[in-house]
Design a binder for these strands. Structure first.
Lengths: 111, 111
DNA sequence: CAAATAATTAACACTTGCGTTAAATAACAA
DNA sequence: TTGTTATTTAACGCAAGTGTTAATTATTTG
C-alpha cells in the first residue's frame, strides 16, 4: 500500500470522508463531538479516527481526558498534488472547469 | 457509498491506482496489455477494471475481440474539484505549494 | 481514595475485497 | 466448422474492514 492508496482507502468510507470534511469545516474537534454526530458507537468512531490518523490524514492533540482531532493540510495537499500532476490529462477535456479550479474555486460552474 | 467515496475506494488498491496512472500516461490500452503489466491473473485484472468502470473512473470501448480502456477525465476532475472545494483549508498551511499546484504543476518544489 | 467521564482496546460476528483456477462468451482465422 | 485468441464470469478460499458490547486506561472531581 503506497502513501496515496492508503490516503484514498482512508477516504473510501462515507463516515470517514464526512469526518474529514467536518473537521476541515469546523476545525479541531474532540472525539466525543464526532461520536455525537454519527449513528455509530464510540468505539466505531474511535477506530475510524485511528484509520485516518494512521493514513496521515488527521493528527491528535491531547487535552486532559479529551483527544482533539484535526485534518493535516499536508494530506490534502498530497491529493491535490496528485490530481495536478495529471492535470495535462484531464484539463480542457470537458469544459472550462480546469481554469475554474485553478483560479477561482468558489465560483459555480457556468452553464 | 457516495460518488466520491466510491471513487476513492476504486483508487485505494495499488494495482488499480497504477492502472489508472498507466492509462493516463499511455492513453487507451486493451485489457491484455494491462494483464501483461501486472503479476496477477487475467481474471483479477478484469475485475479491477470492472471496479474502476463501475466507479466511473474508466470507460470501455470494444474493437473486435479487444476491449480498450481509458480514464474518464470527469472522474479526475471530480477529485480535483473536491480538493479545490476545500482549498481554503489547506492552502498556505505549509509552504507555497498551493501556488505551485495552481499555476505550475511541472515545477519541482524549491528547497 | 472512590466515582465519574472520555476515550481506547479487546473479542467477536458478519460482510466485503482480492486472489486463484475452471468454465463460458465472443470474434477471428484456417 | 473447428480451433485460437481475447476477455469475462463463476465458484471458491482467505484476509481485511466495520459494526457491536464488554473491559481497560487515563484524567478529573468529590
Amino acid at each position: 500500500m503506497t502513501d496515496l492508496t492508503q490516503t484514498f482507502a482512508a477516504l473510501s468510507d462515507p463516515t470517514r470522508l464526512s469526518m474529514v470534511e467536518k473537521l476541515m469545516a469546523e476545525g479541531d474537534l474532540p472525539a466525543g463531538e464526532l461520536v455525537a454526530g454519527y449513528p455509530i458507537s464510540a468505539p466505531a468512531v474511535s477506530r475510524h479516527l485511528k484509520v485516518l490518523r494512521e493514513a496521515g490524514l488527521i493528527r491528535q492533540r491531547a487535552a486532559g481526558t479529551h483527544r482533539y482531532y484535526a485534518v493535516r493540510p499536508e494530506a490534502m495537499q498530497t491529493i491535490a498534488r496528485w490530481t495536478m500532476d495529471h492535470r495535462s490529462f484531464w484539463e480542457g477535456s470537458l469544459n472550462r472547469l480546469d481554469s475554474l479550479l485553478a483560479l477561482n474555486p468558489e465560483t459555480e460552474d457556468t452553464p
